[in-house]
């Protein structure tokens, strides 16, 4: 692994009695696309704000590019906040150029770069429009462009997909992939697992201010047991005794074919167990399988499995 771009050690943030972030540590190596996942109120935005030194952690240390202060390396960081907003009276290009100059870019170069980016991502015709005339989605794209205009090495995007239509979500994915291709490090938070699945190298999952998971996509999938869904008119109880299977749970769905009632079960596989073991066992006993499903768990399932309860809790709080 190359040098780490970002390192958090035992970071805590409390507001009075409320703990927003509780002892979170992680390291992001250079060139990675990191998905930052977690239910609403998990502490994602607070963590991001602390990384950017907008707020100070109560405890713990953060180092960005080896420096304890993000402001010392601000020209190497790009940031898109969760709540999106622009100066209403400024023109699209000038807002991009303004933020780029604040990050240390030369004024002329910033202007050139602003037009370049607007053209590349389909906003050429709106370059000279005032931002109040732009639609929400367009405004958000302008803001994303503003956060990457100075070609930062680390880009932190808080909910970059929210509020975008499917086409623009793809454009956003493209932006992130472009950044990755050029060797940039990206940390982005999202609720939409499919985006994370498609573009992340690793994911970081937090809930209730605590880190739950920090792994690759495959690693994340392995955290919950694989299972196969089987259905048959014959009894399937024997499956529970197989080495490959650690548990057999009746599934709720009951499918009826003709007059017969089919029993459906989810068989959770052991670490060494393979789906084929289940099929083999059935064949050996002459059990007639009406249905056999196997698919690796999706990130969505991982999410629900790991933080489902906390997410529900948070939504009713």
């Amino acid at each position: 692994m190359s040098d780490s771009v970002l390192e958090l050690q035992n970071v805590c943030k409390t507001y009075g009695d409320f703990t927003a972030v509780d002892d979170v540590s992680f390291t992001i190596p250079a060139g990675m696309v990191y998905g930052f996942l977690g239910p609403n109120g998990a502490g994602k935005t607070t963590t991001i704000r602390m990384i950017l030194e907008i707020i100070k952690p109560t405890k713990g240390s953060i180092s960005v590019f080896g420096k304890p202060s993000a402001l010392a390396v601000r020209e190497r960081i790009g940031y898109l906040p969760e709540e999106k907003g622009l100066y209403k009276k400024m023109r699209a290009w000038s807002i991009i150029a303004y933020f780029a100059t604040l990050k240390g870019m030369d004024r002329k170069a910033a202007k050139r770069r602003a037009y370049e980016l607007l053209e590349r991502y389909g906003l050429k015709d709106f370059a000279d429009a005032k931002t109040e005339a732009l639609s929400k989605g367009m405004g958000q794209k302008v803001q994303v462009l503003a956060s990457i205009a100075h070609d930062p090495e680390l880009i932190i995007l808080d909910e970059p997909f929210s509020g975008l239509d499917p086409v623009n979500q793809e454009v956003m994915e493209e932006v992130i992939r472009d950044l990755k291709e050029r060797g940039r490090t990206v940390l982005f938070s999202t609720h939409v697992m499919s985006h994370a699945e498609r573009i992340c190298d690793r994911i970081l999952l937090i809930a209730g201010g605590k880190k739950v998971l920090d792994d690759t996509i495959d690693g994340a999938r392995k955290t919950i047991p694989r299972r196969v869904r089987v259905a048959s008119a014959d009894p399937l109880d024997f499956l529970a005794e197989l080495d490959a299977v650690v548990g057999l749970v009746p599934a709720e769905t009951i499918v009826a074919i003709g007059s017969e009632k089919l029993l459906t079960f989810d068989a959770q596989l052991s670490d060494k167990g393979e789906p084929i073991d289940v099929v083999k066992a059935c064949l050996e006993r002459g059990v007639h399988l009406e249905r056999f499903d196997y698919s690796p768990p999706s990130l969505h399932e991982v999410f629900v499995e790991l933080v489902g309860d906390k997410a529900k809790e948070a939504s009713f709080r």
């Binding site: 601000r74 960081i77 940031y79 906040p81 209403k88 956060s147």
Partner: peptide
Amino acid sequence: NRIIEVLLSSV
């Protein structure tokens, strides 16, 4: 507008 956050990540 929460522009302030972008500003404060820069200055």
